[in-house]
Design a protein around this nucleic acid. Sequence first.
DNA 1: ATGGTTGTTCCACAA
Length: 256
Amino acid sequence: MRIASWNVNSVRARVANITSWLETARPDVLLLQEIKCEDDAFPRLELEAMGYKCAVAGQKSYNGVALLSKEPATDIKVGLDGDADDTQARYIEATVGGVRIASLYLPNGNPVGTEKYSYKLAWMARLHQHVQKLLKQESPFVLGGDFNVIPEEVDVYDPKGWENDALFLPQTREAYRSLLNLGLTEAFRALHPDQKEAYSFWDYQAGAWPRNLGLRIDLFLLSPQAADRLSACAIDAAPRGQDKASDHTPVIVTLD
DNA sequence: ATGGTTGTTCCACAA
């Protein structure tokens, strides 16, 4: 089973990029983030024509996540528990082929020192709580998406320049590590412990893409039962170089 | 220190 994740930075602006990538990549599941539209505006017909069912948690203008799958997804859950007032569409989870799969868009958190950063930490705490519940099932699950966390120095082109950013602050990485330490496996780094300059995001500004000034923030976290089946994890940088590209590129994990 | 870019929307904000 191959599961891909892609922050598309507006699904409506990216329909051509997504369909052309799906034509050749053909993952079993595609997780999307930052779809930036409500459910009714989601380009369902175009993606169904590619052979995918769509489970969508949309929102006007900002955020929004989706889970596309060749086989129908069941038991769809939208949002994380723990804050009834949270209206941001950042989490969708469903079962495909016996695997529980989540598409998540973790809050960016900048600027630090504002309510945006406290929301990020609170959201991570809610995710932590939810993962504890999932782990009790002792079955395979995969959390994929834009984590907006730079796990380690090797995952950013300029660690010094990012040390005060919400994506790389010690407190952010601490919350991320405590999530991992529940017993999850970060698929890419587990399989490629020494690979440098393996990025999944390059800013639109300042020639970040041609200069390869990137970040690796699009991740797959696997439960022990999913990690047992982990056979590959790759970043496909090609879509980032195409016309009208998102600032993120797809990452693909393979479970046997 | 600033500016560099993209998308959505209302004349900024988020990234």
